[in-house]
Design a protein around this nucleic acid. Sequence first.
DNA 1: TAGTGGTCTAGACCACACG
DNA 2: GTGTGGTCTAGACCACTAA
Lengths: 253, 253
Amino acid sequence: MGTTQLESVPEPKYWHLKTVLSEALDSEFAVGEILPNERDLAARFGVARATLRQALEQLELEGRLQRRRGVGTTVAPPRMGVAVGTEQHIWPGAAGDDWQPADSTLEVPPASVAGVLDTGADETVHLVRRSRVSHGQPVAAELLYVPASSVRDLSAIDAPAGAARARAVLRELQRLELEGRESAVELGSARADDAKQLDRLPGAPVLVVTTRYVAQGRTAALSVATYRADTCRLTFGDSGGVEIHEGPARQAS
Amino acid sequence: MGTTQLESVPEPKYWHLKTVLSEALDSEFAVGEILPNERDLAARFGVARATLRQALEQLELEGRLQRRRGVGTTVAPPRMGVAVGTEQHIWPGAAGDDWQPADSTLEVPPASVAGVLDTGADETVHLVRRSRVSHGQPVAAELLYVPASSVRDLSAIDAPAGAARARAVLRELQRLELEGRESAVELGSARADDAKQLDRLPGAPVLVVTTRYVAQGRTAALSVATYRADTCRLTFGDSGGVEIHEGPARQAS
DNA sequence: TAGTGGTCTAGACCACACG
DNA sequence: GTGTGGTCTAGACCACTAA
C-alpha cells in the first residue's frame, strides 16, 4: 500500500509546462517582452532543456511566442487578421490589394500544377512571384501560375524580367472576365526559399492557400500562397460588409 | 589550407533526412504501408532516434505520414478536401450538412467568445457540440455558441440534454434570416477533449475555423470548429458550381 | 509478452545576433 | 567575444496495441 496514486492519468511534463507558461504569459508578461533564456527556464522548472523546448514549440505554434536565434524568446502579439477571401471575384493584382509583385519568369510548372491548369506536361507558363506585407511584416509569399493562353502574347514585351514584367502579366489577366474562384487551406512547412522571404527558418509551419481562378470555363490562373502560420489568422468574409473584430476568439474551453 | 569547404551552408541532418524520406515515400511506398520502426530507420540512416523523429514529425505535419503509438508509422493517403465555406448563407444544422449534433448545454462562455456575441460577462448561452465525419473518419469537433436571444425559449423543452436538445437549438436557429457569415482560419493545437474526439494525442496540430453568423445585424451564433490539420484540406468555394479536383496541388518548387 | 511510438534526460556543439 | 536559440547524441523509461 505504499503507492500513492498521485496521477491516474499522468500528464506529460511538457504539457503541464505549457499550461503553466501560458498562464504566466497571460498574467505576468507584456507583448514584446523577452523571456528568460531556455537554459534558465529549464533549470527553474527542474526539467531538461529539451522538455522545456517542447513546451515552447507548442506555444510558438499557437502564436503565443516568437523565438529568434541569437536574440531570445519574446511574447508575440495577437495574430493579425489577413483577408484572403473577402474581395469577391477579384483578380490578383487588382487595384487595392496589398501584394507586391516581385518577378515573373517562364517556367515549366510541377506536374500537380500542370494538371490543374490543363496545360501539357512540358508547357511553360508565366510564374509571377509576389509577396505580401501586413503591419510592416512579411506575411506571405505567392507563386502565381498563369498559362500563356490566359494572357496576350508577352514575348515582345520590353520588360524581360522583374517587377515590371510581373505587373504586365497581372495587367493582362484583368482583361478576362473572372467567373469564379475556389480556395483551399492546408497546413504545410516552409520551403527554404519561402522561409527566407517570410523571415523564418525552413520547415516553419505555414498555411498554404491554393486558389484557382476560373474564367471562360477553365482555370485561368492558379495561386499558391504561403502564409506564416504563427502570425496570421486568415479571414474569409462572406458577410455584407460587417466589420471584423481584431482578435476575436482565443481557443478556450 | 587544409580545410575543404564541403558545405558552405550545411543543411541540418533532419532536413536532409526529410527530403530523402519524402522521395522514398513517393517512389517506394504505397498508401497505408507500414514503415520500418523508428529505431531501425535511425540506425539505417546513421542518426540518433531523436533526429529521425524530427524528420518524421515534419512529414506527419505535412500529412505524408501517420504515426500511432503501439502500432507503427504508416503512409498517409492524400489529404481529403473538406468543404468549409461552400454553402453560401447556410445556418449550421441546415439539411444536408454532414455535422452530427452530440449535445447541448447552457454554459457561461469564455470572455473572448462573450465579447464577440455581445452578451454579458456572466450570461449563459446554448453550447451545442457537434462532430463531423468524412470518409468514415472524424475530422472536426465544433463548439457552437448560441445566445439565448437568438432562439425562442427552450427552458421548457422536453429534451434536457443530448442530441435531441442540440437539434432543437439548431432548429430554432433556422427561423432567423441569415444575413452573412465570416470565417477565420488559424493554426492551433488540440485540447485534450478535442484530441480525444479526433482520435489524436493532445497538442496535435489543428486548423481552428471560427465562424460568426450574422442575423438581424448582430452576431446570432459563433462556431469554433477544430479540424485535424494532418488529414484535412479546407476548401472555400466561391465559384459558380465548378467542380473541385481531389488533391490539386502538392507544394513544390 | 513483445514491439511500437511518446516522453525525458544531460550533456555537446553549431549558427546567428549584437555589442 | 558572449549569449541566444537550433541541432544532435545515446541512452532510459513509459503508454499503448496487438498477438
